[in-house]
């Protein structure tokens, strides 16, 4: 990967547009990032994207910002991290600066609501699309443990409202223990 000016511009433009379209919280950013950085640019591998999501979730601060820092650092070190932070922070900074001056009109405009409503539904579809692909990836490996972890975590968050940090801790521990166990047996890695 050549790190010329065009590369940095591309990184900036990508993080900027991704941030400008991240409606509804940081997790929305992960599928969009996957489409861009994994499927289109091939800068990252699929599994790296999930690792980045896990680290972004477990660190303090906004998930979208954390994920951008991790990707920037991964593809271009410290300058990359800096560029993707600026790219991610700039859209909400600009947008909210403008909105703060006439926010009552903005809040009550039916046209604005209609546009945002349509985009919100589309975000739901984007997530559904990527979750289907990611889920198939897990199922295709035909190992019972990851499939069980996936289904149980989903039920825990969605049905029982379990704290996300707790799920991260437990799943990380499960992963560590299965590796240690299979190493002790002298077998292959889990």
């Amino acid at each position: 990967m050549k790190k010329d000016l065009r590369f940095y511009l591309r990184l900036f433009a990508s993080t900027f547009t991704l941030s400008a379209f991240t409606f509804g919280g940081g997790y929305v950013m992960i599928p969009l990032m996957q489409r861009k950085f994994v499927d289109k640019f091939h800068w990252l591998e699929k599994e790296e994207m999930l690792d980045i999501a896990a680290i972004a979730q477990s660190s303090p601060g906004a998930i979208a910002v954390n994920a951008a820092i991790l990707i920037g650092y991964r593809v271009a070190g410290l300058p990359g991290a800096l560029i993707s932070i600026i790219g991610t922070v700039l859209p909400p900074l600009l947008l909210l600066s403008v909105i703060s001056y006439f926010y009552i009109a903005f809040k009550n405009s039916g046209a604005v609501r209609a546009v945002l409503w349509g985009m919100q539904v589309a975000v739901g579809a984007v997530i559904a699309d990527i979750v289907l692909s990611m889920g198939m990836e897990v199922v295709k490996k035909k190992q019972w443990l990851p499939i069980t972890v996936m289904l149980l975590s989903f039920a825990a968050v969605c049905v029982f409202g379990v704290n996300v940090m707790l799920i991260i801790l437990i799943c990380g521990a499960i992963g560590a223990l299965t590796t240690l166990y299979s190493q002790r047996k002298g077998g292959k890695q889990a």
């Binding site: 509804g24 919280g25 997790y27 929305v28 992960i30 599928p31 599994e47 999930l50 690792d51 999501a53 896990a54 979730q57 739901g124 997530i127 559904a128 990527i130 979750v131 990611m134 889920g135 897990v138 990851p146 499939i147 972890v149 996936m150 289904l151 149980l152 975590s153 989903f154 968050v157 969605c158 996300v164 799920i167 991260i168 799943c171 990380g172 521990a173 499960i174 992963g175 560590a176 223990l177 299965t178 590796t179 240690l180 890695q189 889990a190």
Partner: peptide, 18 residues
């Protein structure tokens, strides 16, 4: 191992956000 254990959970978290 830890990251491998987290990956399916992250898919589930993204799904629940959806």
């Amino acid at each position: 191992g830890i990251l491998g254990g987290l990956r399916p959970a992250i898919v589930a978290l993204i799904a629940s956000a959806g």
